[in-house]
Simulated scan of single mutants.
Amino acid sequence: MKRLLVLVVFLLALAPVAEASPRQTVEISVTPAGFDAPRTLRSGAVTFHVRSIDPDGAWLGMVRLRPGVSLERYLGDLERAMGNDPVEGGKAVLRDAEMLGGAAVAGVPAAVTLRVGPGEHYLVDFRDVGKPDLATRVRPVRVLPGSSGSVPAVSAQITMLDGKFVAPRTLAGPVRVVNSSSQHNEAMLMPVRPGTSLADLDAFFTEVDAGRYPHDSPFIGGPTGVVPMSPWRSAALSTALPSGEYALVTWVRELRTGKMFAARGMRALVTVKG
């Protein structure tokens, strides 16, 4: 019996070892006219490299609708959530779709790696919400069963809690963004003017939350980061942002009160080392 076990171990050692499939990468360039995307992907880890030549940038996210929910209904949810009905619209978004995350880009390209399962998905540029041709700008993506490798190694983690970011003071290299809150949320890095304080951010977002946009914005550039994800989703973000001081913020509203999370203290100042 012992000799048989030795023989089995020996044969297993000689057997070829299957190598893990390489991670899929998708290059997406966003223009004012929209973007193109592949019709199919394999399930597993997918890295989206996103750049934009649209002056407004892009907030490209991947979405999977719940059973029985149509694309028209989901887009209507988005219109309400990002328009004049943020609470009920936002609750409908949370109920009707799983938001896997994606990349927000301004002048600097970014890469976001997501884990996706088999099924029908959509890529949506949330910057397009409110445009009359929104439905024609959405790209359907069928994810086929398979395996496409693992999520890349990261150097730090940003965790979103209910009303709070937990993040290191300095970010260098790829970072994992985790939504450990009870609703969808996002994590955006925005360059700030030298000397900007948390009080400056609070004053700005208090005004925005009240429907006023101050002329003395603390920001000197657009957002780069991870677009809204459903609770307990995560994504790995990699970007070549210039070194400097940034605000870590969210523009999402709390579904319980309708107030902007950032106006309720969900913000931080971080140093990015490129």
Rank of each mutant, 00 (worst) to 15 (best):
V63C: 03
P32V: 09
A13K: 00
R267V: 00
T257I: 03
G34F: 07
G265V: 08
V138K: 07
R267W: 03
P109C: 08
V252E: 15
S21A: 15
L75D: 02
L237H: 08
L201E: 09
T113C: 02
P109D: 01
V87Q: 15
A58R: 13
A187E: 08
P86S: 04
Q157K: 13
P231H: 06
L255A: 09
T47F: 07
G265T: 04
L123K: 05
D54R: 04
V175I: 14
V50S: 11
R256M: 09
L161M: 12
G68D: 02
R95G: 00
S150N: 12
A236N: 11
G107V: 05
V105C: 12
R42G: 07
L134Y: 05
T196L: 04
T136K: 12
D36W: 08
S29A: 13
T257S: 15
D54H: 11
V208R: 05
G221K: 09
A106W: 12
L12P: 02
E79R: 14
L12I: 11
V129F: 05
T31D: 08
R39Y: 04
A37C: 04
K273P: 00
K2I: 15
V177E: 06
R80H: 09
F205S: 11
Q24A: 14
R233E: 15
A106Q: 09
D96S: 13
S148M: 10
A104K: 06
D77P: 01
G57N: 08
G130S: 02
R139M: 06
M99E: 10
V270E: 03
S21N: 07
D202W: 01
P86V: 04
G57F: 10
E120W: 01
S234R: 14
P191E: 08
P38A: 14
V178L: 15
L94K: 13
D209T: 10
S155A: 15
A187T: 07
N84I: 01
F165G: 10
T224A: 11
L189T: 10
S43C: 00
D202Y: 03
V226Q: 09
T271M: 04
R95Q: 12
V166K: 14
G117W: 00
L237E: 05
T224W: 05
A262Y: 10
A15F: 13
R169P: 01
H215S: 14
S234A: 15
I28Q: 07
R267C: 00
T206W: 04
L71N: 02
M190F: 01
S217E: 00
E186C: 14
V26H: 10
V226C: 11
V46C: 04
F204H: 13
L114K: 12
R169F: 01
Q157H: 03
L171T: 00
